[in-house]
Design a protein around this nucleic acid. Structure first.
Lengths: 197, 197, 197, 197
DNA sequence: TATGAATGAGATTTCATTCAT
DNA sequence: AATGAATGAAATCTCATTCAT
C-alpha cells in the first residue's frame, strides 16, 4: 500500500504539496480537526490523489513527523557541553535560538504530537518517543555540570518543558514576543538554574 | 437552554455524574476524541439525559473548565510575594506543591484546553484566558523582584510554561517522578532564575 | 460494539426489518453488489440506524446466515435412515421436498455464502462450515446403506451438490420447474445411485 | 474500442499476460472483488496499458469467458450416445474425466460466471447462456435413453448440477478428492440414475 | 426526570477510468 | 506501445443531536 513507489518529478511534487498542505492545515486546525478534504483543497488536488500517496490521514502526519523528528535529532546532537560564565551562557543561547527557529517552522507538527498523544495513536507515540530522545541528549549535557543535589533527569525535563511551552505560548497566544527575547530569557533561566545567577 | 433549571437532589446527582464522567473520558481520550457516547456510558445514563443537562458537548466541558478555572484563580491569588534566600524558596516551593496537587486533580481539563485552543473553539478560548489571568498574577509577583534586565512578562511565562509542562510530562509520560521532587526542582529553578543560585 | 443491547419491542422490529431487507436485496443483487444504502431504503430507515444494529454490512449477513444455518441444521437432523424400495424412496422424497422449500425461502442467503467464499471473508467461511456440517449428517445416512465400492463421503457430496445446484438453477435461471418435480427427480436420482434402479 | 486492432507480437503478448493475470486474480478473489489494480500488478504492466487492450474490466472477463465457452462447447459436442452396461458407463466416465480436467483448468472462470449471474451483468448472462447450451447437448443424449417417466430436461439439469458443483467443492473446499475418484463417482451416479444400478 | 431509538450531515476511503507524456 | 499520475463518483461508517414515550 504505502510501499513507497518510485516517484517521478511530478509525483514527488504532488507528494510534497500534500505534505506542506498537511502542515498548513495542522497549524490552523490541529490534528483531530484536520480533514483530508482541507488538505487536498490546499494542495489543489483530489481525494483520490491523496490516497495515492498516503494510505490514510495518519500516515501523512507520520511522514510529516518523521521529517521534524530528524531535524530535532540533528539539533539535539549539535548541543555543545554546557559551561558556566557569560561565554557559556552565550553559547547556550545560540543553541536555543536555533531551537526557537525550528519551533517556528515546525511548531504545528510538534503541537500535534501532543494532541495526538492522548488517545494513544501511533502518531502520538512518535511524539513521545521524540521528546524522550531529545531529552536524553540534554540529560547527558546537564549531567556533566549539575550540582550533586540536582536530579539531572528532572532538571532536563524542566528545561525541555520550558523550551517547548514558551515557544508554544509565543506561537499561539496573542503574546507577541521576539524570537531573540525568547532565546535570551530561556538561556538566562536555564543557565541560572544550573550555574547560579 | 443552559440556564440552570432548579435542580432537585436527584437532578444534581445526575449532573455531577455527567461532569465527572466528562473529566474521566477527557483524561483518557482528549478533547476532540471524546464522544458523548463515552460520557453517558461512564455516567451510566442515556443520550437523552445528557441533553437535559447540557445543551451540547462543549457546554459540558465549559462547565468543567469553569470549576477548574475557579480553583486556579484562587490558587494564583494565594501566591505570596517572592523572597530571596532559603526561606523564600521554601515558601515558593510550598505554593508550587499546591499547584502540583491541583494539576494532579485537574490536569486532563487543563490539557484539554490546550488541545482545544487550536481551531478556536469557545472552550479553547476559555483556556487561553485562564492561562493569561493566571500568568498576570505571577507577573505582579515577579515584577516586584526581577532584576532590571529581566523582562517580567517573559520570565513569568517561562515559569508558567515549566510549571504546566513538567506536570504534564509527569502525568502522561512514563516518567515516574514524585510530586515532591517535581515541586522541589521547579522551586529551585524558578528561584534561581530570579535570585541567582 | 455489536454487544447485543437489550432491545425493546420497537428496536426488535427495526432489527427484523433490516434483516428482512438484507435478505431481499441479497436476492436481487448478490452479496458483493449489495449496498447498505439499498438495505436501509428497503427497510425504510436511515444509515445511522443501520449501524445501531449491525456494526457493518458483513455482520448483517452473518446474522442472516446464522438464522439459515440453524434451519439447515435442524433439517439435516430430521433426515431418517435411507431405505430401498418404493417406500424408502417416497420417504426420501418427502425430506427433499422440505429441502426444496427451505431453499426456496433462503436460497439467496445460501447463494451469497458461495459468492463470499471466494476471497476468504468471515461470512464465506460460515457457508463452508455449514455445508460441511450438513454433508456430514448425510454421510452418516449414506454410510449405513452404501454398497462397499461406493465412497460414502464423495457420494454424499454428490448428493448435496445436486440438491443445492438444481435448486439454484431452478431459482435463478429461466428454467421453470415445479418444486414437486424437482423433489421427485432428485429423490429418484439419489435413490437410484444408492440402491439401483 | 474493443475492435481488436491488428496486434504485433509484443502487443499480443501483453494482451495474453493480461488475460492470464485476470484468470489468476479471479481464482483468488472472485469476480466482484477483482480490481484492475490487481490484474495489472500480476501482469506487470500499468493501468494505462490495460485500457489499451480492453475498454473496461468486464470486457477482459468476457474475453476470458469466451475462451472457456469455446472449450466447453467443444467438449459437449464430443459426448457420445449414452449406453447401458459396464462399457457404456466406462465411456461416460472417460468423458466426465475430461470435464473434470476442464474444470480444473477453468474452474475460476466458471465460478465467476455464477457469481456474476446475480445482479444481471453482461458477463453473468454469458455464463447462463453457456450452461444452457451445454445442458441442451446433454438433454439430447439423455432423451435418447431416459425411461419414459423421467423428464429429460430436469434429469440433465441434475447431471450438470452435480458435475459442476462436485468439481467446485473439490476445487475450493478442503475436501481432498482425486480427479479419478470424482469422475468415477459421478459416472456411477449418472449412469445409475439413467439405467439403474 | 429519564431513556431507547432515530436521524442525517459529514468524514474517510476505494477504484474504474481518463489524461498527458 | 507504454505508463505514471490524476480524477471524482460512490460507498462505508461516525456521531452530535433530536424525537417520542
Amino acid at each position: 500500500m504505502s510501499e513507497p513507489r518510485e516517484l517521478r518529478a511530478r509525483g514527488r511534487d504532488t507528494r510534497r504539496r500534500l505534505l506542506d498542505a498537511g502542515a498548513t492545515v495542522l497549524a490552523s486546525k490541529g490534528y483531530h480537526a484536520t480533514r483530508v478534504d482541507d488538505v487536498v483543497k490546499v494542495a489543489q488536488t483530489s481525494h483520490g490523489t491523496f490516497y495515492l500517496y498516503f494510505s490514510n490521514k495518519e500516515e501523512l502526519f507520520r511522514a510529516l513527523a518523521a521529517e521534524v523528528a530528524q531535524e530535532m535529532q540533528a539539533l539535539a546532537e549539535k548541543m555543545e557541553p554546557l559551561r558556566a560564565g557569560a561565554t557559556g551562557r552565550a553559547r547556550l543561547q545560540r543553541w536555543i535560538r536555533q531551537f526557537v527557529e525550528l519551533y517556528r517552522r515546525h511548531g504545528p507538527v510538534i503541537r500535534a504530537w501532543t494532541e495526538a498523544e492522548i488517545g494513544g495513536s501511533e502518531f502520538g507515540r512518535l511524539g513521545t518517543d521524540m521528546l524522550t530522545q531529545f531529552t536524553s541528549v540534554i540529560v547527558t549535557r546537564v549531567d556533566e555540570v549539575a550540582p550533586p543535589d540536582l536530579d539531572p533527569t528532572i532538571a532536563s525535563l524542566v528545561l525541555v518543558a520550558m523550551f517547548e511551552r514558551l515557544n508554544y505560548y509565543a506561537l499561539t497566544n496573542q503574546v507577541r514576543v521576539e524570537p531573540d527575547a525568547i532565546a535570551e530569557t530561556l538561556a538566562r533561566v536555564a543557565h541560572a538554574s544550573l550555574f547560579g545567577g
